[in-house]
Simulated assay, not measured.
Amino acid sequence: MQPWKISAGLTAALAGSVFLIGGSRLEYLAPHWPTILAEHGIALALHAVLALSVVAATIYVVARTTGLADLGSRVDLAERSVRRGEGDADLIEALRKDTQGEWE
């Protein structure tokens, strides 16, 4: 899986959690939201975009440094080598049975 996909998914999950938890704590501001957004809406939007991009960039960097970015290609390479007959004999036999539909 691409690291930007990981970072985008985790950022969306974190943002959703923050809005879900934070929304209930900000109910007392409900009558004042039109005024707040009229006076500070652009600044709030810019700060939210900046915060989300920092979280996404941090997750991306962590994925790249820990090697999660190349995990999908490594698993694909290992699976192709096993299907060619190189590697663990039990795994090769299990994959052959799975391909032919012979489940025990």
Rank of each mutant, 00 (worst) to 15 (best):
Q2T: 06
L29S: 07
V61F: 11
L71E: 11
Y28W: 04
Q2L: 00
A94K: 02
D90Y: 07
S73T: 14
W103Q: 10
V55N: 04
V82P: 12
G41R: 02
A48Y: 09
E104I: 07
L37K: 04
V82M: 13
Q2R: 11
I42W: 08
R25T: 10
S17Q: 12
A43M: 06
G23K: 00
L14K: 10
S53W: 11
H47C: 09
S24M: 05
T58M: 12
E39W: 11
L68A: 03
P3E: 05
L37N: 08
I42Y: 08
L44G: 00
L77A: 15
W103T: 12
G22E: 09
A43L: 03
A15K: 04
D70A: 09
L26T: 08
A38M: 05
I21E: 04
V75G: 13
P3L: 01
L52F: 15
K97V: 00
A8M: 07
S73E: 15
V82W: 15
V18T: 12
G22R: 07
P34G: 03
G23A: 00
R64E: 03
G23F: 03
D76F: 03
L44C: 08
L95M: 14
G22H: 06
I92N: 09
G67V: 01
Q2G: 02
W103D: 11
L26I: 03
A57V: 12
R25F: 12
M1F: 05
A38Q: 10
T65S: 13
L44I: 10
V55C: 10
R96A: 15
S73G: 12
G67M: 03
A94H: 01
M1C: 07
A69Y: 02
T11L: 11
R80A: 12
A48C: 06
G22D: 09
V18A: 15
A12E: 02
R74Y: 05
E27F: 01
L37S: 04
G72V: 00
A57C: 14
A94E: 04
G67R: 00
H32F: 12
W4A: 14
L44M: 13
K97R: 14
A56W: 14
K97Y: 05
S81N: 13
E27W: 01
G85A: 08
P31G: 10
A78D: 13
A57T: 14
A38N: 09
V75W: 14
L52E: 10
M1I: 07
R84Q: 14
G72M: 01
P34D: 04
H32W: 11
D76C: 00
V75Y: 14
T99E: 15
T11D: 07
G23S: 03
G87T: 09
D70K: 02
G87N: 10
E93N: 11
S81I: 07
I42E: 12
V49F: 08
V82I: 14
A57P: 10
V75M: 15
G41Y: 03
S73A: 15
G41K: 02
R83V: 09
A45F: 11
W33N: 00
L10N: 04
T58G: 15
V82Q: 13
I92A: 13
S81Y: 10
S7P: 04
D76E: 14
G67P: 02
L10C: 05
W4P: 08
P34I: 07
P31I: 05
I42A: 11
S73I: 12
A78L: 13
R64M: 01
T11W: 08
L50N: 08
L20E: 02
H32S: 11
L14Y: 13
